[in-house]
Amino acid sequence: MKKFLQSLLVAFSIVLLATTFSNAQVLEWRLANPTFSSTDPDGAGPATGVATFTLQIHTLSGTINNITGMSTGWSWQLANAMLPTVPAPAPTCGTNSVAQPSNVTMSSTFAALGFSYNNVNQCSGSIDFTVGGRTFDRRAVGTVDGGTINLSTGWVDVFTVTLWSTTTNSNAGSVMINSGAGGDNSPFSTYSVSDAEANEYVVHSRTFGTPLLLVAGAPLPVLFTRFSALCSESGTSISWSTATEQNNSHFEVQKSTDGSTWSNIGRVAVSSLNSNSAKAYQFTDKLGGVAQYRIKQVDLGGQTSYTDVVRISCTDKAFFVNIYPVPAKDKLTLVVGSDKTTKMTLRVLDNSGRVLIN
C-alpha cells in the first residue's frame, strides 16, 4: 500500500501556477474641488463670474520617489469662460509661453518644495473635440518643475486655476484633462510625469469621460462614496456605494484588459430613482482575470458619469489535491478540487510506470 500511495502521489503532483501582474508604477490625476462665484470680477467688462478648480495627483499603489517634472494642463471652453485680465501680468491666449501665470496658484505642498508652473500656454494649439457631450476648444500646457516630491496613494493638490465666466447663467462651462502619454482616456503625448533619473511614468486621467462642471451649486446625479474590486471564489467581486442619487436610470459595469478598450459586462438596476440615503451595489465578473473595472452611471436624460478605475488580478486557481489518511492501510481517500467545473483524467501508476487505473 505504501508503494501504491507513493505512486499515486507522484502521478498527482500538482504544480500551482501563479500569475503575477507586474507593471511599472502608475499615477492618476484629476480636476477637482470646483467653485463658482457670480460676483462680477471686471465691472463693465465681459466677465460675469469667477470659477476655480484644482489639479490633483496620486499613485495607484506604493510611493514614487523624487518626482521632479510634470508636463500637464487642462482643456476648457472659450464659449463659456475666459482668462482673467487681472492681476498683472494677465494671462493671454497668445502664442508665447509664460512662467507662473497669475491665474494659476501652486498648492502649499508643491510651492514649499520649490515647484512652479512654467512655459505655460493656456491656449495651446488648435483643438476642437467633444467628450462627455461637451465640446472643448482650448487646451493649457505647461511644466511643473523646480523641486522634488515623493508621491503616494493619497491625493495631493498640485495647483488651482482661476477662470472668469462669460455666460449669463452662472457657470463657466466645463474643464477636463487628458491622460499622459501611455495612459488610458485619450492620452496626450505632451503630458507626462518624470523623476530625477528621467524615468517617465504612465498617468491616467480621472476627469476625461465626465468633465468637471464649473457651475454654481451644480447637483451631481450620483455621488459615489466607494468603489472596489476583490478576488473571490466566484470570480472578481465588484462593489460600489452611493450617498445620493438623482434621476438615476441604471449602472453599467465596464471591463478593460488594455486600459483603452472598454466593454459592458453587466447592467445593475438602481435601488430607487431618487435617493438621499446610502445605497450599496454588487456585481460578480465570473471570468475574472487581469483586468480594469469602472462603473458607468446613466441618468434618465442619457447623461453619464464614471467612477475611478480599479485594477486587479483575479486569475484562475489551479487544482488542489488532498489524500488521506497518510499512511493508509486498506483505504485511501482522494479529494480533487477546482474553482470551476473542469474535465479531468485519473491515472494510477505503479513504481515502474505501469498504468494500473486509467
Rank of each mutant, 00 (worst) to 15 (best):
R267E: 14
F224I: 08
T333D: 12
G301N: 15
A291T: 05
E252G: 04
G288Q: 08
S232W: 05
Q254H: 06
D308T: 10
Y324I: 02
K279F: 05
E233V: 05
I323S: 03
S271Q: 15
A318P: 13
S237N: 09
G259D: 07
F283N: 03
V253G: 04
R294E: 01
S271I: 14
H250V: 10
K331V: 11
G266M: 15
G235V: 10
Q292H: 12
K255F: 13
T307H: 06
S249F: 13
A291E: 05
V290Q: 09
T284E: 07
P219N: 13
T261M: 00
A229W: 05
T236A: 05
D258G: 12
K255S: 03
N322W: 06
D285I: 03
S277F: 13
D299C: 11
T284H: 06
Q254I: 14
V222E: 06
E233Y: 13
S277C: 08
V326Q: 04
T236D: 02
Y306L: 01
C314D: 07
V215N: 12
E252H: 10
N264P: 06
I238E: 02
N322E: 08
K279A: 11
I295T: 01
T244V: 15
T261S: 12
V310R: 07
V253N: 07
A318W: 00
L273K: 07
K279Y: 00
A280W: 00
N264C: 10
T307I: 09
G266S: 14
A278P: 04
L223R: 07
K286S: 09
A318Y: 00
V326F: 13
D258R: 06
Y306F: 13
G235D: 08
G266T: 10
G217D: 14
L213Y: 00
R311I: 04
T304N: 00
V298C: 05
S275D: 15
T225Q: 11
P219Q: 14
D308Q: 02
D299G: 15
S228W: 00
F319S: 01
K317V: 12
R294V: 14
E252Y: 08
R267Q: 15
P325I: 01
N264K: 11
I312Y: 02
K296A: 03
L223C: 13
A280S: 11
L332A: 05
Q297W: 11
C314N: 01
A229L: 13
P325L: 09
G301S: 14
G235Q: 14
D316W: 00
P219T: 12
S260I: 09
A269V: 14
T333K: 12
Q254N: 14
F251D: 02
S241W: 06
I295N: 02
K296S: 03
D285P: 05
I295M: 07
L220I: 13
T225C: 12
T333G: 08
S256D: 08
Q292F: 12
D258F: 04
L220Y: 13
S271E: 14
S275E: 13
V215L: 06
R311Q: 11
A291N: 06
K317L: 10
L300G: 00
V326W: 00
S234C: 08
H250C: 15
V215W: 05
S249G: 08
A216D: 11
V310T: 08
L334D: 09
E245T: 14
E245Y: 05
A216T: 03
V321H: 06
S260M: 02
I323R: 03
L213N: 02
P219I: 08
